[in-house]
Amino acid sequence: MAADRKVTDYVTLVSNDGYEFKILRSAACIAGTIKKALDPTSGFREMEQNRVELPTINGVTLEKVCEYLYYNQKHAESKDVPDMEIQPELCLELLIAADYLDGE
């Protein structure tokens, strides 16, 4: 981890309508696409700036995504995790965002 000190603890996620979310790198990297973009060995610009722009995701959805990332991180090792509340009206956009971010 000492070598990684240069990389910040927090990274910035930017939605298509300009909202910026600063969240823990460890949480952000739960999402496969973000993880790849921030991979120290990749040499992407995202990696240098610690900033990932997500032009397909709007602010409201990205906020929920960030909430999920922290929720996932918090419950990574626990059993019988209570489901996170998702507003039905957000669901479809969130689903597409989830598909995009998972990066499988």
Partner: peptide, 16 residues
């Protein structure tokens, strides 16, 4: 399996 949270996709699909 029960460990950890379910995927966001899965949560969305269930809600839908």
């Amino acid at each position: 399996t029960f460990r950890g949270a379910r995927t966001l996709q899965q949560l969305c699909i269930d809600t839908l």
